[in-house]
Design a protein around this nucleic acid. Structure first.
Lengths: 211, 211
DNA sequence: AGTAGTTTGTCAAGAATTTAACAATCATTT
DNA sequence: AAATGATTGTTAAATTCTTGACAAACTACT
């Protein structure tokens, strides 16, 4: 049932949307849904939904549709929500703090286990039920706790140095909010660059050009 | 020179990346760059860059490449940075506050002119050099200041109501950080949904599957 | 039990996007 | 001033992604 390889990025990026839409359907008490109904909600085509889901196996039933709860669980399984990854966050400035407090890590199969900052005024502060640690403790912490993912909310000047240290300490994935593209050339290192400013400019362009 | 229509979304989404990479090149003092050099930095192909830029006109020169400063200005023009759009932000919780303080609006041709919240404890607070206003002032504010863009950092339960009020008051574009897809069915309304949690799940999937 | 009505899984067609190729053009060197 | 080398703009090919179509399979009704 697990044809888990060769999934294209567009499909992967739609999976979380399926997941949250199904969560919402569950909350509404909907027990079953057809591809065309779901397509209506998500502004996709029914065909695309069926094709997407079939990459992973046949979760539906002809003449019936999809069982909301089952499909939710299947996609959760594909996304690996039951397999918790440990996450640390570097830089508890405005964005860092917002992410630490606002993102529901556990719902997404992650566990935020450490906060770090270089600034003495922030070290020791309590954020999201955790004490902010000094950067000097970073390497030791990684060696003992072995986080897989690091969230970078630090200035560009520090980012590459910190990323190298973290890779050395076994971190494989980076969620980068710093204002530049983190391009790591090591094999097996995964980076997801988030540029809010770019998103705003895209909105602005679309606004100006009525797209 | 302005073939400004029929630009596909993938191209539009790359424009801000071109813009910030060119800004960086300028800062480094680079005067000219070829499509293949730029491709190397941005992890694109030279062919794609030439094709992208040609949608808007021939900014390069055979045998020479692109003048960094000129190209920066051209893309800035395409993105409309000189034409300032007025922006208001609704909901100054963790994310709202981070966006208000962290996003460089003016550099991107936007102007943050108002902050609003429903919570009495937050109203009156000073954030990013502005006083947070009560939601009751929203409609009057919009009628007098005519913002084009609204940033939504509010719970789902309030989002549709607020969006409707804003559309009624002339707002055309929404940058939505609430935890759901804002689907507006009015013509001419532009929405950019940002789901940080989805981005995290994509990273997690890629981590688990070594993509 | 048989029949009518749904809806999936899948294959094939169509669209969109990316990459490759190359003539035209310009810079630079001799 | 001519020749060489570089690099664009542009066309065509290749690839990827999305949509359409329909047989197979199931539900639900009579």
């Amino acid at each position: 049932m697990a044809k888990n390889s060769g999934i294209s990025l567009p499909v992967v990026k739609r999976l979380p949307r399926y997941y949250s839409n199904l969560e919402e359907l569950k909350r509404e008490g909907v027990l079953r849904i057809s591809s065309s109904e779901l397509a209506g909600r998500m502004k996709l085509t029914a065909s695309q939904i069926r094709q997407d889901l079939n990459h992973f196996g046949g979760f539906g039933q002809q003449g019936y549709g999809y069982n909301v709860s089952d499909l939710y669980n299947e996609i959760g399984h594909i996304l690996g929500v039951e397999q918790r990854l440990k996450v640390i966050l570097i830089g508890v400035g405005n964005i860092g703090k917002a992410i630490a407090t606002q993102v529901n890590f556990s719902k997404r199969g992650c566990e935020l286990i450490g906060l770090f900052d270089i600034d003495n005024k922030l070290v020791g502060q309590d954020i999201a039920g955790m004490k902010v640690c000094d950067m000097t403790e970073l390497s030791y912490f990684c060696k003992t706790h072995k986080p897989e993912i690091a969230i970078l909310c630090i200035p560009k000047s520090q980012a590459y140095g910190v990323a190298e240290r973290l890779i050395g300490a076994g971190v494989t994935s980076f969620w980068n909010f710093s204002h530049f593209d983190l391009n790591v050339h090591f094999d097996g290192i995964i980076v997801e660059n988030v540029h809010l400013g770019d998103s705003l400019m895209t909105l602005k362009y679309r606004t100006n050009n009525k797209l």
